[in-house]
């Protein structure tokens, strides 16, 4: 079951998830070719796949693997539009790390 869980993280948690699949909710800051910078409590570089349809300035949820340089290789992405409450999303990340019995496998 662990393989199927993708913990929700922000930029600050990335270094403890190198080599693992994670889920990030953030705002697209810049978009250049197949590389995007996503703000999730800090800027994260994301290497997009071909299916990704992002637009700068709107929210996005990406699921991907954390590289050793703390960038993310995107496996799946979802455009969330512009009405995303980012402080809420970051708060949820904190809660999911505080109460692991509800959200995460160690």
């Amino acid at each position: 079951m662990e393989a199927t869980s993708t913990p929700r993280v922000t930029c600050t948690y990335l270094n403890s998830y190198v080599g693992k699949n994670v889920m990030v909710v953030g705002k697209v800051v810049t978009l250049r070719g197949d590389e995007a910078v996503i703000d999730a409590d800090g800027n994260i570089t994301a290497h997009l796949n071909r299916e990704a349809h992002l637009s700068a300035g709107s929210g996005v949820q990406i699921i991907g693997k954390v590289n050793p340089d703390l960038s993310i290789k995107v496996l799946s992405s979802l455009d969330l539009g512009t009405s995303v409450d980012y402080s809420l999303a970051n708060a949820v990340v904190e809660v999911t790390h505080q109460h692991k019995s509800v959200f995460a496998y160690d």
């Binding site: 909710v25 929210g59 949820q61 969330l80 539009g81 009405s83 995303v84 409450d85 809420l88 999303a89 708060a91 949820v92 809660v95 999911t96 109460h99 019995s101 509800v102 959200f103």
Partner: peptide
Amino acid sequence: DDFNEVNYHLLEAAYVHL
């Protein structure tokens, strides 16, 4: 429709658990 409902649900699940 509103992605914030996802986050809301997660918080609610945590609240009920606690």
